[in-house]
């Protein structure tokens, strides 16, 4: 099956992720897929939460922290500014405390806590997590393309959904238990109906959001995760390991895209030994990739003559990747496929 066929035959898989080690072309493939889908008339949002995101670079526009920015018709790109999000959130909490208790300023101890909590690395992680939840639970685009940070982090985010899910479910249950004891005491004392527990309401709100995103990310019917791999030994080994880990976290792996494949026709031309060796090496690893991932390989993407930045290059790559002739047929081995 080709990448195009995957999108066409499974239109309900609207949450798309390309994952792989750093520098393999995740952003390039994400942008290319987003561009192609937008061209098919789908409303697409491509987004990143990486503080060093490259969407601004690939689209050659500064979109960092500006919300969804229109790129071409039907295509929006967003780079989340986590730091700013945390700052605004802190102010929101402070304001809520002042309003709730009619204070002019937040008590020092509480304010220190807000500041200390925000300085922790875990705060940035959970804020980023919430930013993703925010984007995906709204559901107002046809496709969401999540430009992930490298593999280890990707897995971390995905597993976070599972861990937060358990945390929130447990404390919501605890709060409900507390409520029951309140209720019991109130009944004994023949008191009126208890007032609403606002904390429980907040917990239920948080739980529903976390549950929803956790469900989406692991739902095979809605989410497709593509691994990006290049014909190099270390990358293949790493991808195999990552695929096993991902499977353990129920990440719905949809297939593999082989990137950076040197054009085989070069071998016919007079090329330096250096390049010839690279092609022979790639041949060896391409065979290994085919043997390992077999029918799960959806595309072989050629190494372009220049880096992919700017819309004209993205368009050219989209044509190669999704055009009528695109398919998972591997490149002709250097020695010729049918060579005796």
């Amino acid at each position: 099956m080709s990448l195009r066929r995957v999108f066409e035959s499974q239109p309900h898989r609207r949450y798309i992720m390309f994952g792989g080690k750093g520098g393999l072309g995740k952003t390039t493939l994400s942008a290319t897929a987003a561009f192609w889908l937008a061209g098919q008339g789908k409303r697409v949002l491509i987004f990143s939460v990486d503080p060093q995101a490259s969407l601004s670079d690939i689209f050659q526009r500064d979109i960092f922290g500006k919300g969804p920015v229109p790129i071409v018709q039907n295509l929006w790109a967003e780079e989340v500014d986590a730091d700013r999000r945390i700052r605004e959130y802190q102010d929101e909490i402070r304001k809520k405390i002042r309003d709730m208790y009619g204070l002019d300023r937040v008590p020092e101890e509480i304010d220190n806590y807000i500041q200390a909590a925000s300085a922790e690395p875990a705060m940035e992680e959970s804020a980023i997590f919430d930013a993703v939840v925010d984007i995906i639970v709204k559901g107002d685009y046809d496709y969401y393309i999540y430009d992930l940070v490298p593999l280890g982090h990707a897995l971390y985010y995905l597993s976070m959904a599972k861990v937060y899910d358990e945390w929130i479910t447990k404390i919501t249950k605890l709060r409900e238990d507390m409520r029951q004891y309140d209720q019991m005491a109130a009944t004994m004392r023949r008191e009126k109906v208890l007032e609403e527990d606002q904390i429980l309401n907040e917990l239920i709100y948080i739980r529903d959001r976390i549950n929803a995103s956790s469900r989406i990310l692991t739902d095979r019917a809605q989410t497709a995760f593509f691994f990006v791999v290049v014909p190099e030994e270390m990358i293949i080994l790493d991808t195999k390991r990552a695929a096993e880990l991902f499977a353990r976290f129920d990440v719905p792996i949809a297939g593999y895209v082989v990137n950076r494949v040197l054009p085989r026709e070069l071998i016919q031309a007079s090329i330096p030994e250096y390049l010839r060796n690279r092609i022979t090496m790639q041949d060896r690893y391409l065979k290994e990739i085919t043997a390992t991932f077999g029918s799960q390989i959806l595309a072989y993407v050629p190494e372009m003559e220049r880096d992919v930045t700017g819309l004209p290059m993205i368009e050219r790559l989209a044509e190669r990747l999704f055009g009528e002739a695109s398919g998972p047929e591997g490149p002709e081995p250097a020695g010729g496929r049918g060579a005796p």
Binding site: I86, Y89, Q90, I93, K96, I97, M100, Y101, P107, I110, Y113, I114, A116, A117, S118, E120, A122, M123, S126, A127, F129, D130, V163, Y164, W167, I168, K170, I171, L174, R175, M178, Q198, I199, E202, L203, I206
Partner: peptide, 30 residues
């Protein structure tokens, strides 16, 4: 127990998603 698992940071027990625990902070101030 509830306070420890949500506001534990205040007494040195790290809380996993601080972003969400901060959301509960206004209600437990008193």
């Amino acid at each position: 127990v509830f306070m420890v698992v949500t506001m534990g940071d205040l007494i040195g027990v790290p809380v996993l998603p601080p972003y969400y625990s901060l959301r509960l902070l206004p209600y437990v101030v008193p």
